[in-house]
Amino acid sequence: MSSGPSPRPAAAGEVVLEVTVHVTGKVRRPGVVTLPHGSRVTDALRAAGGVREGATAGGLNLARKLVDGEQIVVGARGPMAGAAPAPVDPATTVVDLNTATPQQLEQLPGVGEVLARRITEYRDGHGGFRNIEQLREISGIGERKYAEMKDRVRV
């Protein structure tokens, strides 16, 4: 089920990129929506008919760029609604680079506040991670730090 604007046909030789996200919770038309690459959370909410009367977008960052395959939960309580993330055991947890909060990223070996921010900025600026090797493109992640992190991250 896709709602919102239909993708426009591509001109000869043009590639039109899209993101598909699941909008659920307190929206008028919950479901899966497909939007142009570079769309933001506010666009996904609009495509889902907007927030239901009496509900708010709460802790959602409406200006954040969407990542293909993500789920946007409107009006939920708990981590999905922007609350503090659950504690992470850095020795055993595998973190998803496309959904992790900066606090969760800081639990990775050698990742502090600044590097966690660089990772999320890279993710937001590039429409998400397609593979973990893209971490090498981030300033501050060399071969050694990448080797320490690679088994504890996924996309």
Rank of each mutant, 00 (worst) to 15 (best):
Met1Trp: 14
Ser3Cys: 04
Gly4Pro: 02
Ser6Gly: 09
Ser6Ile: 14
Pro7Lys: 14
Pro7Phe: 15
Ala10Arg: 12
Ala11Val: 06
Ala11Ile: 03
Ala12Glu: 12
Ala12Cys: 06
Ala12Gln: 13
Gly13Leu: 12
Gly13Thr: 04
Glu14Ala: 13
Val15Lys: 11
Val16Asn: 11
Val16Cys: 10
Leu17Ser: 11
Glu18Tyr: 12
Glu18Asp: 07
Val19Asn: 04
Thr20Leu: 14
Val23Asp: 06
Val23Trp: 08
Val23Gly: 04
Thr24Ser: 15
Gly25Ser: 05
Gly25Ile: 08
Val27Ser: 07
Arg28Glu: 11
Arg28Lys: 14
Arg29Gly: 00
Val32Asn: 08
Val32Gly: 02
Thr34Ile: 11
Leu35Val: 06
Pro36Ser: 06
Pro36Cys: 09
His37Gln: 12
Arg40Gln: 13
Arg40Pro: 01
Leu45Lys: 13
Arg46Pro: 00
Arg46Gly: 05
Ala47Glu: 00
Ala47Thr: 07
Ala48Gln: 07
Ala48Ser: 11
Gly49Ser: 07
Gly49Cys: 08
Gly49Phe: 07
Glu53Arg: 15
Thr56Trp: 04
Ala57Leu: 02
Gly58Asn: 05
Gly59Asp: 04
Gly59Cys: 09
Gly59Ile: 04
Asn61Phe: 10
Asn61Ile: 03
Leu62Tyr: 01
Ala63Thr: 10
Arg64Asn: 06
Arg64Met: 11
Leu66Trp: 03
Leu66Pro: 00
Glu70Ser: 09
Gln71Ala: 15
Val73Met: 10
Val73Gly: 05
Gly75Met: 01
Ala76Gln: 11
Arg77Asn: 09
Arg77Asp: 06
Arg77Lys: 13
Gly78Pro: 01
Pro79Trp: 13
Pro79Thr: 08
Met80Leu: 15
Met80Trp: 15
Gly82Pro: 00
Ala83Pro: 01
Ala84Lys: 15
Pro85Lys: 08
Pro85Gly: 03
Pro85Asp: 02
Ala86Cys: 07
Ala86Glu: 10
Val88Asp: 01
Asp89Met: 06
Pro90Phe: 10
Ala91Val: 01
Ala91Met: 07
Thr93Lys: 13
Thr93Leu: 05
Val94Glu: 03
Asp96Ala: 06
Asn98Glu: 04
Ala100Trp: 01
Ala100Met: 03
Ala100Phe: 04
Ala100His: 01
Thr101Phe: 12
Thr101Pro: 04
Pro102Val: 04
Gln104Ala: 08
Gln104Phe: 09
Leu105Arg: 03
Leu105Ala: 03
Leu105Gln: 02
Leu108Pro: 00
Gly110Cys: 05
Val111Tyr: 04
Glu113Tyr: 09
Glu113Arg: 13
Val114Phe: 10
Val114Asp: 09
Ala116Asp: 01
Arg117Cys: 02
Arg117Ala: 14
Arg118Phe: 11
Asp124Phe: 13
Asp124Val: 02
Asp124Arg: 10
Gly128Leu: 11
Gly128Lys: 05
Gly128Glu: 02
Phe129Gln: 02
Asn131Gln: 14
Asn131Ala: 13
Gln134Glu: 15
Gln134Arg: 13
Glu137Leu: 15
Glu137His: 13
Ile138Asp: 03
Ser139Trp: 13
Gly140Glu: 01
Ile141Thr: 01
Gly142Asp: 05
Gly142Lys: 05
Gly142Gln: 02
Glu143His: 10
Glu143Pro: 06
Arg144Trp: 06
Arg144Val: 10
Lys145Trp: 01
Lys145Ser: 10
Glu148Trp: 14
Met149Cys: 07
Asp151His: 11
Asp151Lys: 14
Arg152Lys: 15
Arg152Ala: 15
Arg152Trp: 11
Val153Thr: 05
Val153Asn: 03
Val155Arg: 04
